[in-house]
């Protein structure tokens, strides 16, 4: 019976592990070091700000992030004036005006990031039939999360391995499911010039944009973990007190 019980326990553990293993599927996605991982980790704001620069200059030419209000970026350290300036750099559609027409106006922080294409069909038409997915939640919507994003962005290969014939307009990526992806390799060494002077290697860029995408997918992550530490400490104290009370109480039984 002992052994049966331990068999059950190990089955349960195996289930958990296998569940995790199943998540990584065929290709192994290497883990990266993130400032925000772990119980006490918080978003690296400087990195996420650089990531925003990449999003703005590179990604957002094809991808939308339409669930994210510009004001969200206050969470990675942009001041109110900076946010206003960032927002004003975008044109957003407004209206209808008194003549019944839609018109463009400069953005305000309350606006969401405007999308590069008016609708999915336009996005497909401009991208060889492939739809660039919205990036608002991409870090939560892919198995492997930010590690996958990093792997994907650094996983392009100029020449596909022997025996793989790329379909027209497709690119080879080691980590993309199926390996053939409509998106080209877009991160180039010094492809952006970082405002803070950080050398823009491909790895640095991939790291920064992944940190940024992690942030916009869950802007309250830092607050969540900080609250979690407090809640769990509190519950442990309460559990201790409850246990002591219970012991004391039951000790009066004869």
């Amino acid at each position: 019976m002992r052994s049966l019980k331990s068999a059950i326990l190990s089955a349960a553990v195996a289930l958990g592990l296998a569940g995790a293993a199943q998540a990584s599927e065929a290709v192994h996605i290497p883990k990266q070091e993130w400032a925000h991982s772990g119980v006490f980790g918080t978003i690296d704001k400087a990195s996420a700000q650089r990531g925003f620069q990449i999003y703005k200059e590179v990604c957002s030419t094809c991808h939308s992030a339409k669930l994210v209000p510009i004001r969200t970026l206050a969470g990675i350290g942009f001041s109110e004036d900076e946010l206003k300036a960032i927002a004003a750099g975008y044109e957003v559609q407004a209206g209808p005006n008194d003549a019944g027409e839609m018109f463009m106006r400069p953005g305000i922080p309350a606006d969401r990031f405007p999308s590069p294409f008016p609708n999915d069909n336009a996005a497909r038409a401009a991208n060889n039939g492939a739809l660039p997915p919205d990036l608002s939640l991409i870090a939560k919507a892919r198995v492997g999360g930010e590690d996958y994003l990093y792997a994907f962005l650094t996983g392009f290969e100029e020449n596909p391995p022997e025996g793989v014939t790329l379909m027209p307009g497709m690119n080879y990526n080691k980590y993309f499911p199926g390996h053939q992806v409509g998106m080209p390799n877009i991160l180039m060494p010094d492809g952006v010039t970082y405002a803070d002077g950080t050398p823009a290697t491909v790895q640095q860029q991939a790291h920064d944009i992944s940190a940024f995408l992690t942030f916009i997918a869950e802007p309250h992550m830092d607050a969540r973990k900080q609250m979690g530490v407090k809640v769990i400490l509190f519950l442990i104290v309460l559990a201790g007190l409850m246990y002591a009370t219970k012991r004391k109480l039951w000790s009066t039984l004869h």
Partner: peptide, 30 residues
């Protein structure tokens, strides 16, 4: 001997009262 709170009295009882109070207070804060 299990009649609710009317047990053995003395020091044990006061320590128990304190525990009740502390636990109740912390629980209420939670």
């Amino acid at each position: 001997g299990t009649g609710g709170h009317a047990a053995s009295g003395g020091e044990g009882a006061s320590r128990r009262d304190f525990l009740y109070l502390a636990t109740g207070a912390v629980g209420a804060i939670g």
